[in-house]
């Protein structure tokens, strides 16, 4: 346990001092600010009721206020949030092959599983931090807009917010685990990031398109990682269709089913990563 704690602290230190961590975290927060607040607010302020994908302006304003914070939190995670943390985790593992640091870290004594466990735990801590910042930014921006528009600040249902934070953690955790697995599988940053992005942004969408043509194929596509993440977001209030539909959000599965599948994928990716790290030679 002490070895795992030492390894986690060491990995956390080097990850927090890594510029890529802050760049990717900054990108996620910036995207959230732009797509959840800046663009809708500009559209709302333009006084054109059809400016934001045809949505009525009151509805547009309501979508930015504090009661909607749980939905705002989760809606961007299935596609862009997932892609960003997948890139982060794939880089964190894949780059260590490029830098030749595996041979350094794996010869310090904690053991292979503990070393990889420490890296995964450190990435988990970073994700928790990112979700905490994202929650604070969401509540802060929603409150700011309420103040600017002279609306009462009505806080969201804290239980709903807790579920949204948990759902966000599950979706991002699953994609991070996928990134770890790809980084270990490909033993490099470039291929792991490329494959991960191809999957999250293209392949699953194409497969869902194919499911419309082939009877019964949707039974497969509905349980893929992206579909599960999108379904959880949909079950927690993000719009999967209509004028406010968010890319990646689906209604293919119920919330509990989607959450269970995400949990299974998370465990499978983590175990797969540990097996790869444990069994392979470090050249």
């Amino acid at each position: 346990m002490t070895a795992l704690l030492n390894t986690t602290r060491a990995e956390l230190r080097r990850i927090l001092l890594w510029p890529a961590t802050w760049v990717l975290g900054g990108i996620w927060i910036t995207l959230q600010l732009m797509f959840s607040y800046a663009f809708p607010f500009i559209a709302y302020r333009s006084n054109d009721p059809d400016a934001f994908q045809g949505g009525p302006s009151d509805q547009l304003l309501a979508s930015m206020l504090p009661p909607e914070a749980p939905t705002i939190m989760i809606q961007g995670t299935p596609m862009f949030g997932g892609a960003i943390v997948m890139i982060f985790a794939a880089l964190a593992v894949g780059s260590t092959y490029n830098w030749g640091t595996w041979k350094t870290t794996l010869t310090q004594g904690p053991g292979r599983l503990t070393t990889m466990g420490g890296m995964a735990a450190a990435i988990g801590v970073c994700l928790a931090g990112l979700i905490a910042i994202s929650t604070a930014v969401t509540l802060g921006m929603s409150s700011l807009i309420a103040v600017i528009e002279s609306r009462d600040i009505v806080w969201p249902d804290w239980g709903d917010l807790g579920v949204a934070v948990g759902g966000t953690g599950l979706v991002l955790g699953m994609w991070a685990a996928a990134g770890l697995f790809l980084g270990a599988l490909t033993r490099g940053p470039a291929l792991s990031v490329g494959l991960g992005l191809l999957w999250t942004l293209a392949v699953e969408n194409l497969l869902r398109g194919a499911a419309n043509l082939i009877d019964g194929f949707s039974a497969v596509t509905d349980v893929l990682p992206g579909s599960s993440a999108g379904s959880l977001a949909g079950a927690l209030g993000a719009a999967s269709s209509g004028s406010e539909a968010t890319p990646g959000v689906l209604d293919a599965l119920t919330g509990p089913t989607a959450a269970s599948l995400l949990g299974i994928y998370l465990v499978v990716f983590l175990v797969g990563t540990l097996i790869l790290i444990k069994r392979r030679d470090v050249a």
């Binding site: 030492n6 390894t7 230190r13 080097r14 510029p19």
Partner: peptide, 16 residues
């Protein structure tokens, strides 16, 4: 991206 000393501190943490 780490300094020489920072690298050693990270490795030292691995060893406790």
């Amino acid at each position: 991206y780490l300094s020489g000393l920072e690298n050693l501190r990270v490795i030292a943490r691995y060893r406790g």
